[in-house]
Design a protein around this nucleic acid. Structure first.
Length: 301
DNA sequence: GCACAGGTAGATT
DNA sequence: AATCTACCTGTG
């Protein structure tokens, strides 16, 4: 075959002194807890990719919650640290946002926050985030990650370290539905290909414009895409556009709301309204705490 | 073999 | 307008 992945050489570990402070559990949950699907866990670090970036990240050994990162050694100058800051949404004061959540009157939320202190909402590339969650319906996280690897390897451009990035939407449109089927996407392959066609027709700036729209308008635009319903639209807005007021309700969150908040029998639109009213304008951030805590068995679900 | 998994869209009631 | 059901594939 054409090109084997090279054994990439990584830089020495750099202390990210201005970066967010996260303990091990919260770091893992942030990067590999269902927001993003291109992180792999190794004994001493996580390795992941987005856009044309490749990073290894860990909590500094022995230190309290300070992060360290390492990148593939490259002959080209790199803007890696700026990319990392953007990905971690370092301009966002999550500590303040956490304090603004209604935990004082909500013991479930308090428990969830205590389980994953400092948990963050990533700011992923909008286009990649849309792809990711189009892959996600009725799939478990390990499967979604496996699909991402296949699609990146077969359709995405090669990076300097020999691995591959996710394909762009024009690349997906050009490739057609067949390679998506081959990536085990099943019925999602048609949605993804049709979405690629839609984006191609709508023009090159459409995604960028949608990302910049107010949340409700952006959601309405995303809902025009085949395969994108309310849940996927809200995931893209939350994890790919920094909209902390977007509250995706999946089967986990539905169970949390019905059981821990005793809302048995409520339908999705009602639960959506409850979430907005109860958790407020940062409801999406609350959702991530609850989702993480439920998966960890810390709260009823 | 069969139910179920980070849903959505189209059909049916 | 609310409630089924088909859609792919891997896993238990």
């Amino acid at each position: 075959m054409s090109s084997q992945p090279k054994a990439a050489h990584f830089s020495a570990w750099q202390r990210w002194t201005e970066g967010p402070r996260l303990n091990h559990a919260s770091l893992i949950e942030t990067l590999d807890g269902g927001q993003a699907f291109r992180w792999a866990r190794y004994p001493d670090y996580l390795e992941g990719r987005w856009s044309d970036q490749v990073f290894r990240i860990k909590v500094a050994p022995g230190s309290s919650d300070l992060l360290e990162y390492s990148v593939p050694v490259s002959p080209e100058p790199t803007h890696a640290l700026n990319a990392l800051k953007h990905y971690f949404a370092c301009a966002v004061d999550f500590a303040h946002h956490t304090d603004c959540l209604p935990w004082r009157s909500d013991p479930v939320l308090t428990t969830a926050i205590q389980a994953f202190p400092g948990l963050r909402i990533l700011r992923q590339p909008f286009a990649e985030c849309l792809f990711s969650f189009l892959c996600s319906s009725t799939k478990q996280i390990p499967q979604i990650k496996a699909i991402h690897e296949i699609v990146a390897t077969t359709l995405g451009s090669q990076l300097p370290d020999g691995s591959h990035r996710l394909p762009t939407w024009p690349q997906i449109a050009a490739a057609g539905e067949a390679p998506l089927r081959a990536a085990k996407l099943g019925y999602r392959a048609r949605y993804i290909y049709q979405t690629a066609e839609y984006i191609a027709t709508a023009g090159t700036d459409w995604l960028r414009e949608v990302e910049a729209m107010p949340t409700e308008l952006a959601r309405a635009e995303l809902l025009r895409l085949p395969g994108v319903g309310r849940k996927i639209a809200d995931c893209v807005l939350l994890f790919g556009a920094g909209r902390l007021d977007a509250f995706p309700i999946d089967t986990w969150v539905e169970k949390i709301l019905t059981r821990a908040y005793q809302l048995e029998g409520w339908k999705l639109p009602q639960l959506q309204q409850f979430a907005n009213a109860h958790f407020g304008p940062l409801s999406g951030y609350a959702q991530q705490y609850l989702f993480a805590a439920a998966r960890a068995g810390k709260i009823a679900s």
